[in-house]
Design a binder for these strands. Structure first.
Lengths: 327, 327
DNA sequence: AACGATTGCGCAAACGGTTGCGGGTAGAGC
DNA sequence: GCTCTACCCGCAACCGTTTGCGCAATCGTT
């Protein structure tokens, strides 16, 4: 069965397709009577507009691109939920692409987005990304872009992040308060902007505090566990643990709890989306930065840009508020 | 800056747009010389085809719809990764929609997919879904659909699942072997097909085994934890735990480990995507059903249907193999 | 040299919906 | 009876790409 088109409806009523189009779009140039009859028949026949045709004509696809470096367990699901909820409310659909932590694939993804004529793009960068040249394609097409979470310093960008430096510093303070002397920190990839900011915020807050800091880098729960096991095996017995993400938290806690030599009470402070900490049965302090809210905010910001129909030449970095939670 | 189109290229070479189109698509009707010159200039100018136009003309959008009941932590990320990897390899992009466990929203999602002229659809149903009528829209348009994980019994459907009955029975056996007498089972929503199958497989395998079975239903980690806490508070002290998903596993284990009265050694058997069990620092047996592979298989199956260009009137339920793992 | 086959390109329509413009009709006002 | 206006609707172009068909030029064959 073919799908019913505007032309089909036009034939039914013996009018011009343009009139049907206007009737369906509630254009004032169509008589009330005809308008009603058209709309009811359209419903009966289950008429659904062909967005492809409309998009093509209007040069608006009503499609949003979402590019993430990887599909992880904790942050990504929250993000996609937040983005999709807002996008749907505004009448947009989501094309989701992941870069597998590869710049090459990120570039591919941008091209895919361009070819699909997306109306706007949301991006979290890979750890390999050093500049934003590959987005020029979209910028020249005046397609608004909002970066979030994993971003680069760059003029004239729209972005949604948290105050990583400040949050890390706040977490660092808790180690001072609890009197920790040997702190293990599991950070993300050292190339990442957020890793650098969180580390420097952490170190800055403890710059005059006499504790031994040992940092390791890990991108996944598995890596975090291994790195932590190595650290423990090396004889370092931390009384404090700092992690930068839920993934690394999971791995590090597993390593510590699985440690055969046992371990004295260990104070934990971390960044988290808020779910995992409640299931680990250990006390900890965490900065909750909600992926859901970041996703919502980023999408809302993007939508503003789209409606404005002109890319702002100003930089706008939205810093989301975070909450410090003790459990 | 406007994007370069085929017409721009045609003007440059003083030829007809159709010739440019053929040159770019390596059509034999274009001379080698011209073909090369066109392709090199197209690269230089960074020409990217406007898929919207091509899709419109060809009635193929190269878009795949992916509808999931909810965006959870463990299963969904694996699924989307598997689907996207295959889809990308075949030249398709993904529109991701979640139904928030609501039939109404699922119906909306199907309509969105239809309007976007998707070439194929992958669906895991909500717990509210009782029939597949709302997919008729797409079926009439001859759009292939592949159901996965959460499906309904229905003739003439393509689906990818696991043998839930058998797998649950296998897990049940482990309780018999370890001699458990009081088994707590945390299952998903009772309306779900997989819940019913897994429960009946479980009960069947233990039909002649003298153990006390207590089942509770939970959709999330939080619910699972609460239900398990209630069960423990009621005086039931399980020596065996059976869960149906990673989410429920996480909640149930947290409840047991957080139990103030302590608990004797508890044998755990569950369904899992394979990641979480390694981080809980408890021994268990689990049936690994890889969301990644299910996603890949479902997408590959869908691609076959798309290429066949005619919807098969036969039912084809692919049962993925599972692995029993003890840790 | 005459003829058929092949090569290489142009022409134009089509996909479905949108929109500026124009025009016909009916009613109101003088 | 005339003009003016408001109301409704048709006409046709357009968005970028694809493709069947046609045709001229070239090539190969007898």
């Amino acid at each position: 069965m073919k799908r019913t088109t505007i032309k089909d409806l036009a034939r039914q009523f013996g009018v011009n397709p343009s009139t049907i189009s206007r009737a369906l779009n509630n254009h004032p140039d169509v008589g009330e009577d005809l308008k009603n009859r058209v709309q009811t028949l359209a419903n009966q026949l289950g008429y659904r507009p062909n967005r492809l045709a409309a998009s093509f004509r209007n040069r608006r696809s009503r499609l949003i691109g979402l590019i993430v470096p990887q599909v992880n367990m904790f942050f990504f699901p929250s993000i996609i939920k937040g983005v999709e909820d807002i996008a749907r409310a505004k009448g947009y659909s989501l094309i989701v692409l992941h870069s597998s932590d590869s710049l090459e694939r990120e570039i591919e993804n941008v091209q895919i987005c361009f070819e699909n004529n997306i109306d706007g793009l949301l991006v979290a960068l890979t750890r390999e990304t050093q500049n934003l040249e590959h987005f020029d394609l979209l910028r020249e097409a005046e397609t608004p872009i909002v970066f979030f979470d994993k971003i680069l310093e760059d003029p004239n960008q729209q972005a949604v992040v948290i105050d990583d430096f400040e949050a890390a510093a706040t977490l660092a303070q808790t180690f001072r308060e609890t009197g920790c002397k040997r702190i293990a920190g599991v950070l993300g990839d050292p190339n990442l902007n957020i890793t650098q900011k969180r580390r420097s915020g952490f170190e800055y807050a403890l710059r005059d505090y006499p504790a031994e800091l040992r940092f390791v880098n890990a991108d996944s729960a598995a890596q975090s566990r291994v790195k932590m096991q190595e650290l423990l095996a090396s004889g370092f017995a931390p009384d404090g643990l700092f992690t930068m993400s839920d993934e690394t938290l999971l791995g590090a806690v597993a390593a510590i709890e699985g440690n055969e030599n046992g371990l004295p009470k260990c104070h934990i402070a971390c960044f988290s989306d808020g779910l995992l900490p409640n299931y680990l049965n250990v006390h900890m302090t965490y900065v909750q930065h909600s992926g859901y809210e970041i996703g919502q905010t980023a999408m809302a910001l993007l939508h503003e840009q789209i409606c404005r129909e002109t890319v702002l030449p100003v930089s706008n970095i939205v810093q989301m508020p975070t909450t410090l939670i003790r459990i």
